[in-house]
Amino acid sequence: MHTEIARAYPALFTSDEDLGADTVRIQFEDRTLCVREGTTVAAALLLHGAGPFRTTPVKSSARAPYCMMGVCFECLVEVDGKASRQACLTMVRDGMVIKRQHGASALDLSDEGAHHGCC
């Protein structure tokens, strides 16, 4: 069963702080979000009602942050073209482009056969 995850979701959390001058702009899917500097990607997306962050490789089940401390890997997203970034451990920065991760990430095998410190 494939779950539709691109629809709009209500924000799960609210912030009681004004954004103020210390804000950055990030791009999530087709939305520009203004978030407070020093916020993790996971917190920023949850504050803006992002819904599920990724789907599983086998059944395409929707997943979202669970532990918020880097243990469970449920919050994996693509950040600036790099897959499998833990949103709960990644701080936002101005101009960051974030996308949902669908299924397994592709491995970059462009340097296949290169020697990495052995023989």
Rank of each mutant, 00 (worst) to 15 (best):
V41D: 02
E112H: 11
A62D: 07
A50F: 00
K99C: 07
R7E: 04
A64D: 04
F28L: 04
P65Q: 02
F73A: 12
T14A: 05
T3W: 08
K82M: 11
G38R: 06
G95A: 11
S84D: 15
L12K: 02
G95E: 12
L19G: 14
A8M: 13
S61M: 11
T14K: 08
C72Q: 14
E17W: 05
L89S: 04
M91D: 09
M69D: 15
M69V: 13
A64E: 03
C119H: 12
T23K: 02
P52K: 05
P52H: 03
D16H: 15
A104F: 07
L76I: 06
A104E: 12
D111P: 00
D94K: 02
G38P: 02
D16Q: 13
D108Y: 08
E17N: 10
L46F: 00
T32Y: 09
A114S: 03
H115Y: 10
G38M: 04
R100S: 01
H115S: 08
L45C: 01
R25D: 15
F53L: 12
K59H: 13
S60K: 09
A44L: 04
V58Y: 14
P10R: 07
L12I: 05
T55M: 05
A21T: 15
A114C: 04
H102C: 06
V35R: 03
D18F: 14
T56M: 11
D94P: 07
F28P: 03
L45H: 00
V24D: 03
D80A: 08
E17H: 13
F53C: 02
G81N: 10
A42L: 01
C118K: 10
D80F: 09
P57N: 02
A64W: 04
G20M: 09
R36G: 12
V97K: 15
A43W: 09
G81I: 15
Q101M: 07
E78D: 14
E17P: 03
K99F: 12
E17Y: 04
M68S: 05
R54I: 06
M68K: 10
D30V: 12
P65F: 01
G49M: 06
R85M: 14
L12P: 00
R7H: 09
T40M: 06
I5D: 07
A87Q: 03
V77I: 06
A21I: 11
A8H: 14
T3N: 09
Y66M: 07
S60Y: 09
L76A: 10
L107T: 13
T40S: 15
V58L: 15
L33D: 01
H48S: 06
A50K: 00
A50D: 01
T3K: 13
D111L: 00
G49V: 07
A43P: 05
V97R: 15
V92C: 02
E4V: 11
H115T: 05
C75K: 01
R7I: 14
I5G: 03
E74G: 08
F73Y: 13
R25M: 09
C75V: 03
R63L: 15
L12V: 03
C34P: 05
V79Y: 13
A62G: 11
A6S: 10
L45S: 01
C88V: 00
V71F: 11
L46N: 01
A64V: 11
S60C: 11
G81Y: 14
A83H: 06
V24F: 00
A87L: 04
F13D: 08
E17L: 13
D111W: 00
A21E: 13
S60R: 06
R93N: 06
E78N: 10
